[in-house]
Design a protein around this nucleic acid. Structure first.
Length: 435
RNA sequence: GGGGACGUAGUGUAGUGGUUAACAUGUCGGCCUGUCAAGCCGAAGAUCGCGGGUUCGAACCCCGUCGUCCCCGCCA
């Protein structure tokens, strides 16, 4: 008999069906017992009321993998109004060891380190599983939105020869006796590919060797990158970035309602047709006026400043999103395009989502000579590591720009997680390289 | 890299100097024919992270050490 998924069982009342999955829970009441079987899509109750059937489950613990054949019966007392009776069990993979923590309770009760140590089974919990389904939905929504805008998906190398993009620390690896690095971003390659496809995006891992230890940093994360040509300036990039955010949220609403419900998300973030934006120096002025902290002249915003600005966007514009534009040039990588009217500031932006930096982007330089000048200003004398990168500009690149979204941070802010590690399948941090 | 807090059964917690370290959950055994966080009865399970010190006496106080978490810097 062909196996069906648990949500389909309801369509087979009066028939015998075969379902397969994990033993979620077995409630033994004596003469009647209820086994709940969990598969990838849901759960179904199986009534076990004969000694033989019960004996076939003897000494099996939760997470035992089994197949069940039985008769589907409509029963008002059953969860979902449906249950399987007169079952025959086929044990596919018996479990006789107790789990480190219960997976069959509504809320998973394990501390963060315990959960992470046992993530291989902990991820099976319905809520954790739903969270990572949602994460898949964010990637799918990102792709769907950009596909609709004429972008081409690319995959660029994660093993790279030079680690010269910015100040961020990189992981060095041995590459057949040569020094190589794990890519800290696809920046160079995605720009190069604008010369090929004009509009590109990439979903892939990036590696940061920063020894930071906070609730919103990990050392390997998934970056949702986009880059495209023939822009006027960074405002065109912001328009696409906000369209992507709205596109992702709409995609979740359309295709991931069940996961959102499982995770208790009753309302999606407020993403207005046009996201509010504030110019970097104006943001600092606002912080002084509203919260009395003078950070004018500082090259960057501190996390507290971002939280304040997030509140402000919420109360002032009813938006969960806020662009901060024009970060000082000194704080941005060399490929950043300056503001022609105010060259100390850049044509770049951050997008704050509920008061945390979620997206960084901007207009890039596109003229060959500008790159040579920018690198010289950075004190770079050896252009050799930049050779392949610069070659693209030598042979003509359109005005372009792009942005990158941190996937796990998006999940974290969307679901109000306390720690980004909860939004990462197998997080890599200062002390965690396994599982 | 700088600062702060916390380490107690498998798991989550209580216990702030005094016999046998408590509760919930999980596990094991028993009862139970409508459970859905099942219920009731019983059992096992902790050298209180590790090492040293103070004390008649330490889970508790002190020092060291290891581990974990949080904040800042930095970033997505």
């Amino acid at each position: 008999m062909e196996r069906i998924y648990t949500p389909e069982v309801a369509h087979h009342v009066g028939e015998r069906v075969r379902v397969a999955g994990s033993l979620h829970t077995l409630r033994r009441l004596g003469g009647i017992n209820f086994l709940v079987l969990r598969d990838a899509r849901g759960t179904v109750q199986v009534v076990v009321d004969t000694a033989e059937a019960l004996a076939s489950l003897e000494s099996l613990l939760p997470e035992t993998v089994l197949a069940v054949e039985g008769l589907v019966v409509a029963e008002p007392q059953a969860p979902g109004g449906i249950e399987i009776r007169a079952p025959r069990f086929e044990i596919l993979s018996p479990v006789r060891a107790a789990l480190p923590f219960s997976l069959n309770k509504p809320a998973l009760k394990a501390s963060l380190p315990v959960f992470l140590d046992h993530a291989v089974v902990g991820l099976r919990h319905v809520q954790r599983r739903g969270l990572f389904r949602l994460s898949a939905g964010i990637m799918a929504g990102f792709r769907a939105t950009l596909d609709g805008l004429g972008f081409t998906e690319i995959q660029t190398p994660k093993l790279v020869a030079s680690a010269t993009e910015s100040g961020a620390n990189v992981f060095a690896v041995d590459y057949f006796g040569q020094r190589a690095y794990l890519a800290q971003s696809p920046q160079f390659y995605k720009q190069i590919m604008v010369g090929v496809f004009e509009r590109v995006y990439e979903v892939g891992p990036v590696f940061r060797a920063e020894p930071h230890d906070t609730v919103r940093h990990i050392n390997e994360y998934v970056s949702l990158d986009a880059e495209f040509g023939f822009i006027r300036d960074h405002r065109d990039v912001m328009a696409v970035a906000s369209a992507v955010m709205r596109g992702i949220l709409a995609y979740l609403q359309a295709h991931y309602a069940a996961e959102l419900e499982t995770l208790g998300v009753t309302a999606l973030p407020v993403a207005p047709a046009e996201f509010p934006a504030i110019y970097f120096p104006d943001a600092q002025e606002l912080i002084l006026q509203r919260w009395g902290e003078d950070c004018r002249g500082e090259p960057d915003l501190a996390p507290q400043h971002e939280r304040w600005l997030g509140e402000w966007a919420r109360t002032e514009f009813g938006s969960d999103f806020l662009f901060v534009t024009g970060y000082p040039m000194g704080k941005r990588p060399f490929y950043t395009h300056p503001n022609p009217a105010d060259p100390a500031y850049s044509n770049s932006f951050d997008l704050l989502f509920r008061g945390t930096e979620l997206v960084t982007g901007g207009q890039r330089l596109h003229l060959y000579q500008d790159y040579l000048d920018a690198l010289a200003r950075q004190g770079v004398t050896d252009l050799k590591p930049f050779e392949t990168y610069l070659e693209a500009f030598k042979f003509g690149m359109p005005p372009h720009g792009g942005f990158a979204i941190g996937l796990e941070r998006f999940v974290m802010q969307l679901l109000g997680l306390d720690n980004i590690r909860l939004g990462t399948l197998f997080p890599r941090d200062l002390s965690r390289l396994a599982p």
